[in-house]
Design a protein around this nucleic acid. Structure first.
Lengths: 149, 149
DNA sequence: ACTTGACTTAAAGTTAACTTTAACTTGTAT
DNA sequence: ATACAAGTTAAAGTTAACTTTAAGTCAAGT
């Protein structure tokens, strides 16, 4: 199967311009060209799904390019690529943890506003707490030091 | 307890400039000023922890400002704020789901490179698959239509 | 032969979220 | 009295990730 830039862009939910930009940044390795036009094949499609994944985890384009370059160098860079993957795995875990903490905060706020709406005023709840117990716990980080301590 | 801009910046892990920028954008409601200098109090600190939370879920500054403005208007905006919170809760859930999918892909790649490193070459694994089963499943989205269908 | 539509590149423009700079004020220490 | 450290504003600069524009190529249809 092969696709035009317009088709693959539609599949990926991005614009052809963005794909051209990615290509110009070296994010799309070895895309075939026929009469000067890009022809996307299954291998490109597979890679685009991984690229999409890397974008979802907020990997900067520079870092993705780094990975692509390593992959193009072949077997001598296997260890480096492995390290890069591990590093990014850690980053994903961290992001998930942060999001879960924030989710708790927003669930608290959902309760907060539901209660306030029922009562017609925020006063009913704001005396209890305007912040969730989760965030309330650490008022000041343990590692915080005032200047010159 | 009250803090200078330098102190609170250190606690929050950002620079004083960023705090001033947030203030100029209306993200810090009613920060006290003494001799023209900002004095941060416990209520500001609490709000900064929520703000930090909102930044972590990638809420754009415009959206955060919108929330702050609603909160400043008082009880008449309770329902609007509730809706905004629900909307953001959905967004968090979506982000967590995306990250979990990507985590699976990276776990696959971890295995992929570990196996390749042991064998000394990528050839051993790339014939099996260069992409995880999770991403492999949907080659083309079900909702994809070629032009003119 | 000519128009049309989809592509191409190179370069300039945009947007968000800061960051830096310049010029100025103020409280504290010598 | 003076110097210094830490704060202030307004405005300009930066960076990442696109997006738009301008000018041109190319194959297919009339």
């Amino acid at each position: 199967m092969s696709y035009s830039i317009k088709e693959i862009a539609k599949i990926m939910g991005i614009t052809p311009s963005t794909l051209r930009y990615y290509d110009s940044e070296g994010l799309l390795p070895d895309v075939k060209k026929v009469n000067g036009r890009r022809v996307f094949e299954d291998k490109d499609f597979k890679w685009l799904r991984v690229l999409n994944c890397m974008k979802n985890i907020n990997m900067p384009i520079k870092k993705i390019k780094e990975y692509v370059k390593l992959a193009q160098k072949g077997d001598t860079t296997l260890q480096e690529r492995y390290n890069l993957i591990l590093e990014q795995k850690e980053s994903i875990q961290k992001q998930i943890n942060e999001l879960n903490t924030c989710l708790k905060e927003f669930e608290f706020k959902e309760w907060y506003y539901k209660t306030a709406i029922e009562a017609g005023t925020e006063k009913v709840v704001e005396n209890i707490s305007s912040i969730s117990p989760t965030l309330e716990i650490d008022k000041i980080p343990k590692n915080y030091k005032k200047e010159g301590m």
